[in-house]
Structure formats: structure tokens, C-alpha cells
Amino acid sequence: MPADTPPPLRAGALIGCEVRARDGRPLGRIADLETSREPDGRERITAAIVTGGRWGRLLGYERDQHTGPWLLERLAHHVIRRHTRHVPWTDLQLPPMT
């Protein structure tokens, strides 16, 4: 990697980061990332699951498509999902990474 090229950004550095909309409006923290595979085999971030409330994970129940025991589903819906939203990656403004 050339000396002037910044190091690659790791998912672990993004989880928990506070993000804003492109207009500067605060959205919350990144709870999860969504990717898609490019033709060259690389993964590209396409969206983020952003939460305005608690940003921790609850066994993957922050995702709408997860199914599991009904009691955990209901709990996850009331505790975590009510504050989460799917935001396209291009609509996010990240904080400066050091």
C-alpha cells in the first residue's frame, strides 16, 4: 500500500460511531452494516442500521428479517427496533476517523 493511501476502514471502527445525515442532522449510532458483493469479489457497504436509542445488539434481533422465539421478537421490537432505521450508505455523514 502506498504511503499516502489511508489504511482500510474496518467495520469494528464503524460500529457504535455517531452519524449524521448529509444535511448535518444527527441520526444516531451505527448498530450494523449491510454489504453487497462487487463483481471483483470485494464487499461494499451499501447501508447502515442506525439506532437513536441503545446501540447495542440483542442477538441479531435488531434486524427485521430475523425470526425467532415470539417472546424475544416482541421484546426486540419494543426495546431495540423502535429506534432503528435502515439508512443508505450514501446518505450518511461519518465523523472524522483517526
Rank of each mutant, 00 (worst) to 15 (best):
E38Y: 07
G12S: 11
I80M: 04
L14F: 06
P26A: 12
A3E: 09
P69D: 13
D32Q: 04
V79H: 00
H66Q: 13
V50G: 03
A48T: 01
A3S: 04
V19C: 08
W89L: 04
T5V: 15
L92A: 04
H66R: 14
R22G: 01
T67P: 00
T51C: 02
P96I: 12
T98S: 10
A11Y: 09
E43D: 12
P26I: 03
P95N: 04
D32N: 12
T35V: 08
L33M: 07
L59C: 08
P39W: 02
L71R: 10
E34Q: 12
A76R: 00
G52I: 03
H78P: 01
D32M: 07
L71K: 03
Q65N: 09
T5M: 15
C17P: 03
T46H: 06
R81H: 09
D64W: 09
L75V: 15
P6V: 00
L71H: 11
R37E: 14
Q93S: 13
T98I: 08
P6K: 00
G68M: 03
I15T: 01
W55H: 11
A48Y: 04
R42V: 12
L58K: 05
T46W: 05
R82C: 10
I80S: 01
M1I: 05
A11M: 06
L14I: 12
E38T: 15
P7H: 11
Q65E: 15
H83L: 07
R63E: 06
T98H: 10
P26Y: 05
L58F: 15
R74P: 05
D23R: 03
V19T: 05
